[in-house]
Amino acid sequence: MTDTPQTDGPMTDAIDARGLKVHFQTAAGLVRAVDGVDLTVRRGAFHGIVGESGCGKTTLARALIGLQSATVGQVSIFGRDRADWAKADRKGFARAVQFIFQDPLGSMSRRQTVGQTLEEPLQIHGIGDNKARRARVQELLDLVALPETVLDRLPRSLSGGQRQRVSIARALALSPQLLICDEPLSALDVSVRAQIVNLFARLQAQLGLTIVIVAHDLAIVREVCSSVTVMYLGRVAEEGEAKAVFSDPAHPYSQALLSAVPSPNPVTEATRPRILLAGDPPSPRNPPPGCRFSSRCPVVEPRCREAEPVLRPVAHGGAAACHLADADAHAMI
């Protein structure tokens, strides 16, 4: 039932976005939610997008798959121009790419049982007869480790973790190749968070999915993601292999963001050096001139306020957008 998307071949990236901008015209002025993002996600990657609220993560995630139209920029998915693909074969595109929303309840009908919720995409896409669909629903339940007893229940009556499993199962119904998830863990308790994160990791290995996850919880991103993008005010501050970025962050913002995550061990916590970043992020309505982080950066220099740094390769193999970071060295705050 899977039809592999036609691509330029197995070596193409899952996502390749160039010069992506999403600007919103509002009464209070132009909001540059996403302001010139290049993003590459390799096939089979588990890619994390992190950054403070308002930095444009949701807008970027939505723009990648056309849930939000971009002001400028171009996105390829599995080597095909996304806009062309969606125009030429809307259903095929919808089968290949699925989005999981932050609030699982918001994306399900309140009056539909779990069984109906899971069967609906199969019906819409005319997949299988009644019997085959039932079997597929059962398969989906097994994939996300839900008991059959949930089939007749309404989403509202489920626990937060169960609801998130249902929304994952629904997203998997059409056997997508790419799953984009907007903060699927934020509303969950820690132990349930671990269950869901392990579920993602297992599904990825089992089904060969590419997963992009927008997440708040940096410790979990470091634990499960293969690659990561750190965003600040609509731009990419740093990117690279997750373990590398987390162990040797080159951008002062990444350093501060990581430092804000407390250690669960109180002894480590009491003794580690800590950077307390002052203030909230400035507004994407009028980002500071030059480097966008310059208004909060502990190691800011005069030149930072003049020229906006571009992404350059850094020591860990990824890239960072900071005047003080290049392949040879970077500032430590």
Binding site: A194, A219, I220, N265, T268
Partner: peptide, 22 residues
Amino acid sequence: LLASVPDFRSDSASGTKEIPGI
């Protein structure tokens, strides 16, 4: 509960072990 919380500063593989069930 503690095993389900990763600690990226610790060298030992802390991981995200889950408590089964609800």
